[in-house]
Write a protein that binds this DNA or RNA. Structure first.
Lengths: 112, 112
DNA sequence: CCATTATTTAACCAATAAGCTAATTAACTG
DNA sequence: CAGTTAATTAGCTTATTGGTTAAATAATGG
């Protein structure tokens, strides 16, 4: 994994299991075994995924007796959103042009 | 690389060289050697990165004589933005609470 | 202290990624 | 056709990833 945080974030997000874990955590904190429950994967497998998410800063872990509840952390997601903003104009611009095109080729428009 | 497109997109974005290439392409089309120029990497190395970007749908390639100009494609970025939207409320909510907190502890506010 | 539950660590494996150099393909140019 | 420029493919190496099972650690409860 690379050293910069954005790369670490994207790498962490590039796995459907990890994204599903984040989705689950967006509904509230959960223990490791709760998070593992929907998957056919072994518990150590989940544990590894959590480690990746944690080192990317996407989750934090506290402690409650023998449970280690995980919590979603949004900072890295904000960073991704910030990075994306640099490109948003590009696709919105394109959408504008598509709309213009549709208007030109719109049968209703042609009638006039 | 995984089969789902969102994973492929995130994986493609998880590399600073590839993100730099996209940034360059956001200013307009460019040939492979133009894209390679700012990097110390070998040309085949860049070629591989472009292949990753292309198979993630983040760029498309046309042909102009012996050049193969690359163009940024925004669909996958839109998909990422869409995915992110599911989490935006989370950090904006947090920001609201931070603002409330700052208001409470604001020296000016305390004077009254 | 012993057993149970929750989780992590260790050790391993197979597949993939990221880089290189050398060779090849493709297209233009004299 | 020969030479040059642009880019890709092949083949290799090394490191990382994503998964496994088995063993270890941590905390609770009787």
């Amino acid at each position: 994994m690379q050293t910069d945080t954005l790369s670490a974030t994207f790498a962490a997000l590039a796995d459907p299991t990890r994204r599903a874990i984040l989705a689950r955590l967006s509904e509230g904190e959960a223990s490791v075994s709760e998070l593992a429950e929907p998957f056919s994967m072994s518990l150590p497998g989940i544990s590894k995924h959590l480690k990746v998410l944690e080192s990317a800063g996407l989750i934090s872990r506290s402690r409650n007796a023998q449970w280690r509840p995980c919590k979603l952390e949004t900072e890295p997601l904000k960073a991704v959103a910030g990075w994306l903003e640099g490109y948003r104009a590009m696709w919105e611009d394109r959408l504008d042009r598509l709309e213009a095109f549709l208007k030109l080729t719109d049968p209703n428009a042609r009638e006039h």
